[in-house]
């Protein structure tokens, strides 16, 4: 394995203010040791206009800092204007991460990234997408190690989410609005009140899910620090950090050091724990278990 593992920052899933979002990306551009940054609204097109005026400056700053920029699309499109926006983006010729099959027709025959919201669970799907011009496939979050072993490096680049809340479902309906007694059309952008998502617990008090507009995420953070080396050996080329409302530059630094073999995972995990506080860690999907589970190294190797 000669080339070093690439570290990427996935699209920001939460509805931060335009100011906070812009400052976050400027800080990432200047300070974070990342190879690639995904930019774009994945969850709700109603949020789009807020950040639109800043996109160009952010792309410029990231590019100038030597980071590859990929433009992510919505995970689910139903409105004409959403489809039109994706089409227009694809036609500019920038590298696009397609998160809805809708985009695949638009980018067919040109290099593009297939995002984690498009189901690629097997070689058959993988081959069709690569044949259509996909140069990188981001595997879905519900991916077991044995499947990664088959799919990674089949052709082109393979990316996996390794840090952050796990995206579990997308919908047309806005649960954030619903939790406030509102509907999607009259949502008042209440999702902006929760920059790291809204906790949704069970009725007997177990933390379980996080609501982010129309998206449902895990309550815990996916943490695969201990599995990075193994995934790299299987052929995973890109490792994705999903932005949470915390010091993502430090999160990137820890992952970079482990990927480069400059820091042991035990030490790295201690450092990461200081950053994530009381939020539980999860890694069950990769180990073929329930996604909310945390499998310790000793168990994982048992």
């Amino acid at each position: 394995m000669t080339a070093r593992g690439k570290l990427t920052l996935g699209p920001l899933l939460f509805h931060w203010t335009a100011q906070k979002r812009r400052d976050f990306y400027f800080h990432i551009a200047d300070e974070a040791d990342l190879d690639c940054v995904y930019l774009g609204e994945v969850v709700c097109s109603k949020r789009d206009p807020f950040f639109e005026p800043h996109i160009e400056a952010v792309v410029e700053r990231l590019t100038a800092a030597g980071k590859q920029v990929v433009r992510s699309t919505l995970a689910m499109m139903t409105l004409d204007r959403e489809v039109a926006a994706a089409r227009a983006l694809a036609q500019t010729g920038v590298l696009v991460e397609a998160n809805d099959v809708a985009c695949l027709s638009e980018v067919a025959g040109r290099p593009h990234v297939v995002g984690p919201y498009i189901n690629v669970f097997n070689e058959g799907a993988c081959d069709v997408l690569i044949d259509g011009g996909a140069v990188r496939i981001v595997l879905p979050v519900e991916m077991t190690k044995s499947a990664v072993r088959v799919l990674a490096g089949r052709a082109g680049e393979t990316e996996m989410l390794v840090f952050g809340r796990q995206p579990l479902a997308v919908a047309m309906r806005c649960y954030h609005a619903r939790s406030h007694g509102l509907t999607k059309d009259g949502c008042q952008f209440v999702c902006g009140l929760d920059p790291d998502g809204l906790p949704a617990d069970t009725i007997d008090g177990q933390a379980l899910l996080t609501v982010n507009g129309t998206q449902t995420l895990s309550n815990g953070y996916l943490v695969l620090l201990d599995e990075l080396g193994e995934l790299r050996a299987m052929g995973v080329t890109h490792f994705r950090l999903s932005p949470q409302d915390m010091d993502m530059v430090a999160v990137a630094r820890i992952h970079r050091a482990v990927l480069d073999g400059q820091r042991g995972t035990a030490e790295a995990m201690t450092q990461l724990r200081q950053l994530t506080g009381s939020i539980p860690w999860q890694n069950g999907f990769l180990h073929g278990r329930e996604g909310l589970a945390w499998i310790e190294r000793a168990d994982a190797h048992a």
């Binding site: 189901n119 879905p140 479902a169 996604g291 909310l292």
Partner: peptide, 21 residues
């Protein structure tokens, strides 16, 4: 079905068994 079908991992998140596959 409120979720986008075929792309919902809530059940496997809780059980480890995938509706998708």
């Amino acid at each position: 079905g409120p979720m986008s079908e075929g792309r919902c991992f809530l059940s496997s998140y809780m059980t480890g068994l995938s509706p998708t596959s």
